[in-house]
Nucleic acid binder design. Structure first.
Length: 409
DNA sequence: TCTGGGGTCCTAGGACCC
DNA sequence: TCTGGGGTCCTAGGACCC
């Protein structure tokens, strides 16, 4: 049996668990920038009941927030990662669920070598109780034959109070469960596939399962076909557990629109630099640097422009000055004057372990020295705060420092 | 005034190879 | 010199996820 554990309204639950006196109030977690813009990322049931939704921009629901005294908190991802790790640890200590792995910050998969539903239910209930006692985070649990079906089970665990947060979906109940499930609730069916489903007159998950394999393969490609198989109880999805991320991205929506080139350059440098820190933290190097910039797509009254481009580095690296320089070069290609920019970001791709650097025959870089320098900088910034050491190349390229790539602080 | 920030995988098509 | 068949690799973009 595959076990799926899903935290309920995770970000909101984390805030409630770590603060006094908010558990009886509607609670909302939103991201935001200095100007207070932002959208709702998570909310508890009390907040849902007064009509709030995930994705609502805060400025549109200001009246509701005031009227019902909603507690609004900014997202604190460091806290959420810590609580997530605590949940992992708690479950592993129980020694009941095997191969327990995180799928995202608030979802986990594992397996149980049992098939009697009562037994499964009993053990999963123990795990659920341990999580809720140790971390104060309420969870829903689904168990079934495949990952996709375990997520179906969790859907029912969440939607039917009678299950008390645990649903064990055995083969004999599949038919009924799938016939009651809207197809767009199935893991792997998103916006585009939902439209295709409508065209094929597929309304429930069961309608999908009943379609012929050849039709599914043709209309929905490999992904859709895998989902179809999993719904029939045939495992074929793999949960990837990369220890190293394969891409690292840092981007922001600005509090206000920016036209000034130097100001944008400053942001691009900061994002690139932040990406590098994360890259080194996972002991990786990257070979491709991508930059994107865009205007405010919501402002239809203003001229729109958005673009992205990449550069391939001659040698895979995690060296901040090298990567910042590359990002700024790409930005130079992208930038068009007279537009009001609202969003920008940097993505690192082609990521590999830093022990596997392929040296370019003609490249003349002293990698050992670079790495020592980076290590020192990271150590200092970790110890004394992220802005203690700052790379000169992050500053406006119009006033380069005399010593190339030297750090100032 | 104010509208998120990350990720993964798959596919189609072009470049290039023998 | 021309032609075809059979491959691989790379990339951009699109789909999905949280």
């Amino acid at each position: 049996m595959i076990v799926h554990i899903d935290c309920n309204a995770f970000f909101a639950s984390c805030e409630i668990a770590t603060r006094e006196g908010v558990e009886n109030r509607p609670v909302v977690v939103a991201n935001g920038n200095e100007a207070g813009g932002g959208v709702i990322l998570a909310l508890n049931n009390k907040a849902k009941k007064i009509g709030l939704h995930r994705g609502h921009p805060l400025f549109q629901v200001k009246d509701l927030l005031e009227k019902y005294q909603v507690a609004v908190f900014p997202a604190d991802h460091v806290k959420y990662r810590q609580i997530s790790a605590h949940i992992m640890q708690t479950v592993q200590q129980q020694g009941i669920v095997q191969d327990f792995l995180p799928y995202s910050v608030d979802e986990f998969f594992g397996s149980l070598p049992l098939d009697k539903p009562e037994e499964v239910r009993t053990y999963v209930a123990k795990v659920k109780q341990a999580i809720e006692e140790n971390t104060k985070i309420p969870v829903s649990c689904g168990c079934s034959l495949t990952y996709t079906l375990a997520k179906v089970a969790t859907y029912y665990a969440k939607h039917y109070a009678g299950y008390k947060g645990i649903c064990v979906l055995t083969a004999d109940k599949l038919d009924k469960a799938l016939s009651m499930l809207p197809v767009e609730e199935v893991w792997g069916i998103g916006r585009t596939y939902r439209k295709k489903m409508q065209a094929l007159q597929i309304v429930t998950a069961k309608d999908l399962v009943n379609k012929e394999e050849s039709l599914v393969k043709k209309a929905l490609n490999t992904r859709g076909w895998q989902t179809w198989q999993e719904l029939k109880g045939i495992s074929c999805v793999k949960i990837s557990t990369h220890e190293q991320q394969q891409s690292i991205m840092q981007s922001r929506t600005f509090a206000y629109m920016i036209e000034n080139k130097e100001e944008l350059q400053k942001h691009i440098s900061d994002y690139a630099s932040a990406c590098c820190v994360r890259l080194r933290r996972q002991h990786s190097v990257c070979k491709t640097v991508t930059v994107f910039i865009a205007t405010n797509r919501h402002r239809t009254d203003l001229p729109q422009y958005g673009n992205s481009a990449s550069v391939k580095l001659p040698v895979a690296t995690s060296d901040t000055p090298t990567i910042v320089k590359a990002a700024l070069q790409v930005f130079e290609q992208l930038y068009r004057p007279f537009y009001q920019y609202k969003r920008a970001g940097v993505i690192l791709n082609d990521i590999n372990d830093d022990s596997s650097i392929q040296l370019d025959l003609f490249a003349n870089q002293d990698i050992v020295k670079q790495r020592k320098l980076m290590k020192i900088a990271d150590t200092i910034n970790e110890k004394f705060g992220a802005e203690t050491l700052h790379w000169a190349i992050q500053d406006s390229p119009k006033e380069p420092s005399k010593g190339d790539d030297s750090a100032k602080g």
